[in-house]
Simulated assay, not measured.
Amino acid sequence: MRKVNSVAAVLLFGAMAMATATAAQASVRYLAYDADNRITQSLTRGITLEVERGMFGATRVKGLFSTSSRGSARFESDNPSGLSRVLPEGERLGSGYKVLPEGDGRALANALCPGSQATWLVTGRVRSGHPLTVHAVGLWQDGQYRHCAELNYRYRGEWASLPTTIGEGPADR
């Protein structure tokens, strides 16, 4: 009888753990931003970030979609040590994301850091309702990291899912 109770307790505990894990799974959000200055507008205009929010509120940017035209890029979380040394004075290293070359990633990387071998985007905390600053950093053939651009965005809204019509924003839906 004792063995049956132990098995039942283990099964009950496992079921509770699975239910808790399911409720706490990561959620994906689509946050839209508009360029906040001329430099940012000349490089990216409006963007929508695919943001994954983890169990304890931590966020991770998975991809970027152009809100004003066709185009998207995927990212990989990556914080090489050279990134923090090239950020403008007073800026702290937030989350680093390597721009993957698939799809429009290569074009985005070349637009932000022309001539670099690889490009990273460094963000502060990505939060709904707040402005966002993104630093583009490139790795050159000589092995040096260089700061390429500072992009400033103002928050525009949140999509319920990925936009189907490019050029319209969350507030236009």
Results as ranks from 00 to 15, higher is better:
G71Q: 05
T59N: 03
R70H: 03
T44F: 00
A35N: 06
V7P: 00
R85M: 08
S68Y: 04
A21V: 07
Q25H: 12
L49H: 07
N37A: 07
N79V: 06
G14Q: 14
G46S: 13
T40E: 03
A32T: 08
M16R: 13
Q25V: 12
S42P: 04
A21R: 12
S27I: 14
G71C: 03
A35K: 03
T67N: 07
K62E: 13
E50F: 02
R29H: 15
A15W: 13
Q25P: 00
F13A: 15
I47V: 13
R45D: 15
G46P: 04
E52Q: 12
V10I: 15
P80R: 02
L49Q: 01
A15F: 14
T67G: 06
L12S: 09
A24M: 14
Y30C: 05
T59I: 09
F13D: 04
S42I: 04
F56A: 11
A23N: 09
A8R: 11
G71N: 06
Q41E: 14
A24G: 10
R53S: 03
S81Y: 04
R45P: 00
E76N: 08
L64R: 00
R38Q: 12
D34H: 14
M55A: 15
R29I: 06
A8K: 10
T48F: 01
A35F: 08
F75C: 04
R45Y: 04
T67L: 10
E50C: 02
G71F: 01
M16I: 15
S81Q: 10
S81L: 06
D36L: 07
S42N: 15
S6M: 10
M16E: 06
S81F: 05
V86E: 03
A23W: 11
L87G: 04
A23K: 11
D78Y: 05
Y33C: 08
R74M: 11
T59D: 08
R29G: 05
V7M: 09
R29L: 10
L64D: 00
S68F: 01
S6V: 13
T48N: 08
G71S: 03
Q25C: 06
A73I: 06
E76I: 09
R53F: 05
A23G: 09
G82S: 04
S66Y: 05
R38E: 14
I39L: 11
R29V: 11
A9F: 07
M18T: 14
E50M: 08
N5T: 07
P88W: 04
S69P: 01
V7T: 12
D36F: 01
E52W: 04
I47Q: 02
V86R: 03
S69N: 11
P80H: 09
